[in-house]
Design a protein around this nucleic acid. Structure first.
Length: 309
DNA sequence: AATATAAACAACCGCACGCGC
DNA sequence: GGCGCGTGCGGTTGTTTATAT
C-alpha cells in the first residue's frame, strides 16, 4: 500500500520533528481557526507550517472537521436524530460519513461514538440486533420460555404433596432458570459468539451441558418449555431493517416538531419509505417493556447481578 | 473522602481510494 | 499501467468525566 507521508507511525517523523500529539490547547485551536477562516485550509499537509502549528496536517484536518468547524452542532442527540441514524445505519451499515451527510452539523466521528457508546446498547436492550436491525428472536423466545417456565414451575410447586419434593422442585426450577437466564443475559450483554440454541424437541440448550440430567433430580420433572413464538410477521421484522424494497422506519420522528418534519421531508424527498401505520405496541414490545421494568426493579436487578457474578 | 469502575468523548492510526504525473 | 501523494474513512485507543462502592 501507499502510506501517507503525514502522521505515519512507522517513520518516527513525530519524534524526529517534534510534532505535537494528543489534546489540542486553546491556543492551537485559535491559531487553526484563525488561519482557516482567513485563508481556507488549502492543502492540509501545508497548513500546519503556514499556520504556525506544530501538528501534522492530518491532525489539523481532524480537529477542524470534528471540533472547530463553525457549523458544527454540539450537545446531545435528539430522538429525531437518533431515529435518522438508526434508519441510515440500516441502509448503509458503518458508513459513518454517509450517515453524517444526512445530519446537518454532526460529524461522522461524533455519530460513530454515539452509536458505539449509547445506541448499540439501547438497541440491544430493546432486543434488536444493532448489526442487522432485526429482532433478536432467539433471545426473546428464550426469555419468554423462561417466563413460562417460572410460571409453570409455580403451578407445579403448588401441587407438590411432600415437603422434600417441594424443596427439590424449587431448587431444580431455580437452577434451571438461573442457567437459562445466565445464558440469555450473557448473549444480551453482547458477546459476539454464536448464541446457544434452544432445541425445542429436547428442551436443551445446544452448546451447554445437559442441565436436565445434571441438575434435575426430580423423577419425571420435565418442565414444559412451550411458549408463544414471537410472531415472525410482527412489526419488529420491518423495524427500519432490511435492505429490501419494504424496508421502512417506524415513525419515531415527531412530524409535529420542526426538526422532525424537516427530517421527514428530507427522507421523503430521497424516496425513503416511512412507516406510519405501525401499531403502537406489539407483543414483543410488551415483553421488552416488561423486561425493562424487571431490570428497573431493585430486587430483580440485584437477583440478576447475583446470577451474573 | 477516596478509590474503582463505567461511560463518553477526542484523537490517533492504518488503510483505501482518487488523482495527477 | 505504475507510482507517489493527498485526502477521507472506519476501527481502535487514550483521556476525561461521571457514577458507584
Amino acid at each position: 500500500m501507499v502510506r501517507s507521508p503525514c502522521c505515519s507511525s512507522g517513520d518516527h517523523h513525530e519524534a524526529e520533528e517534534g510534532l505535537k500529539k494528543g489534546p489540542w490547547s486553546a491556543e492551537e485551536d485559535a491559531k487553526l481557526s484563525e488561519y482557516i477562516e482567513k485563508e481556507g485550509h488549502g492543502r492540509w499537509s501545508d497548513l500546519p507550517r503556514k499556520a504556525g502549528l506544530n501538528r501534522c496536517g492530518k491532525s489539523c484536518r481532524l480537529r477542524w472537521i470534528n471540533y472547530l468547524r463553525p457549523d458544527i452542532k454540539r450537545g446531545n442527540f435528539s430522538e429525531e436524530e437518533e431515529a435518522v441514524i438508526v434508519h441510515f445505519h440500516s441502509l448503509y451499515g458503518n458508513k459513518w460519513s454517509k450517515i453524517a451527510s444526512h445530519l446537518q452539523g454532526r460529524t461522522d466521528n461524533e455519530i460513530k461514538n454515539h452509536w458505539n457508546t449509547r445506541m448499540r446498547k439501547k438497541l440491544l436492550r430493546m432486543g434488536i440486533d444493532p448489526n442487522t436491525h432485526k429482532p433478536r428472536t432467539d433471545h426473546l423466545n428464550q426469555a419468554m420460555s423462561l417466563s413460562q417456565l417460572l410460571s409453570t414451575g409455580g403451578s407445579h410447586l403448588s401441587s407438590c404433596s411432600s415437603l422434600s419434593s417441594l424443596e427439590n422442585a424449587i431448587a431444580n426450577a431455580t437452577e434451571l432458570a438461573k442457567l437459562q437466564l445466565h445464558n440469555l443475559l450473557v448473549q444480551i450483554i453482547g458477546t459476539s459468539s454464536p448464541p446457544p440454541i434452544l432445541d425445542h424437541s429436547t428442551n436443551t440448550l445446544l452448546g451447554v451441558p445437559d442441565y436436565r440430567s445434571h441438575h434435575l433430580g426430580v423423577p419425571g420433572f420435565a418442565p414444559t418449555m412451550e411458549h408463544q413464538a414471537v410472531n415472525q410477521s410482527s412489526p419488529w421484522t420491518s423495524y427500519g431493517g432490511g435492505l429490501g424494497d419494504n424496508a421502512c422506519l417506524p415513525q419515531l420522528v415527531s412530524a409535529a416538531s420542526p426538526e422532525g418534519s424537516a427530517i421527514m421531508n428530507q427522507m421523503e424527498s430521497e424516496g425513503l419509505p416511512i412507516c406510519s401505520d405501525l401499531p403502537t405496541q406489539s407483543p414483543a414490545l410488551t415483553f421488552v417493556e416488561d423486561w425493562d421494568n424487571l431490570l428497573e426493579d431493585d430486587t430483580s436487578a440485584s437477583f440478576l447481578r447475583e446470577i451474573l457474578q
